[in-house]
Design a protein around this nucleic acid. Structure first.
Ligand code: MN
Ligand code: MN
Ligand code: ZN
Ligand code: ZN
Lengths: 150, 150
DNA sequence: CTCTAAATAGGAACCATTCCGATTAAAGAA
DNA sequence: TTCTTTAATCGGAATGGTTCCTATTTAGAG
């Protein structure tokens, strides 16, 4: 269930390209923070990314990780999911998708649904404002945690 | 657009009843924290509630506000909306409803949609786990902020 | 009224994130 | 390549929301 070599390569290429066109310096730190996400499926938080990248870039600072994640998000290279209150969780999968969040272990699983991608927004909402994004979050026990409970 | 006197009274009655059946002491502090929400439509955060209630209960502590909000949520008297990372926002409107969140001013507006209340969950999700709750969040510019921008 | 478990006050602690000032280094120019 | 500019980084302090802790108070049962 890992991200394929080909997909990782595609993402790294897009990263390099975005740095160029966006006028961003392709620093060692920036590259390694993105590489961490390019191969991840676990929606890691900033602290987790920090700990992993530090193995490769021992002197990297937390601030750089946070700053870099914000930059990558601005550039549309990663997606920040506001899962529960507290830590943001990051994802380099930029396809339109949704999240199933386990209330026991906190794991975040992607799922796809063209129907949910394009929800019927009631007319009453247009009086409130112009909708720019929609997000569907499902919560429940994941199969793993359900098994453990028995 | 304020909550009607009748509705507030209904909510306060439910509060009293829930305290009784739930074995909760109806303390002055508890009552005033709930009263604050019973009449609110702005999804205030804990700090806002604290500042308002303090006018009536000058010695109340932040801890009590936080603890009370958690208790009220457990008892199903209020709903905690995880809006953006950071502050939780509270609501005594327990009817099934959804939120439109303005990305500029942060205001949270309720809206209703029977369709969104009962979303079609794709079969693929059942492999991930058992869904216990669903949440739809819409984000965008509210009409007020859109006006200001011009 | 008395008693006791539940609830509170106030402040310390905690934790994720951001800020800041000094230092480093990417990348365009020469 | 070397020089220069300025974006980016580092490390630690600061911030802000929330929770924890302990002594004290109090609602409500008996
Ligand atoms: Mn995802
Ligand atoms: Mn609401
Ligand atoms: Zn789980
Ligand atoms: Zn607004």
């Amino acid at each position: 269930m890992a991200v394929s070599k080909a997909e990782i390569e595609r993402r790294m290429k897009r990263f390099a390209e975005t740095c160029r066109t966006g006028g961003l310096k392709t620093t060692h730190q920036r590259m390694e923070v993105f590489r961490e996400l390019a191969g991840a499926e676990t929606h890691p938080d900033a602290e987790t990314i920090y700990r992993h990248v530090r193995r490769r870039v021992p002197a990297i600072s937390r601030d750089t990780v946070y700053r870099t994640l914000a930059t990558l998000e601005e550039q549309g290279l990663v997606h920040k999911a506001e899962i529960v209150s507290g830590r943001g969780r990051y994802d380099a999968n930029m396809e339109h998708h949704h999240h199933f969040i386990c209330t026991a272990c906190g794991r975040v699983h992607d799922f796809y649904s063209p129907t949910l991608d394009d929800l019927p927004i009631p007319k009453s909402v247009s009086a409130l404002g112009r909708v720019e994004s929609t997000q569907v979050q499902l919560r429940g026990l994941c199969t793993n945690c359900a098994k453990d409970k028995r």
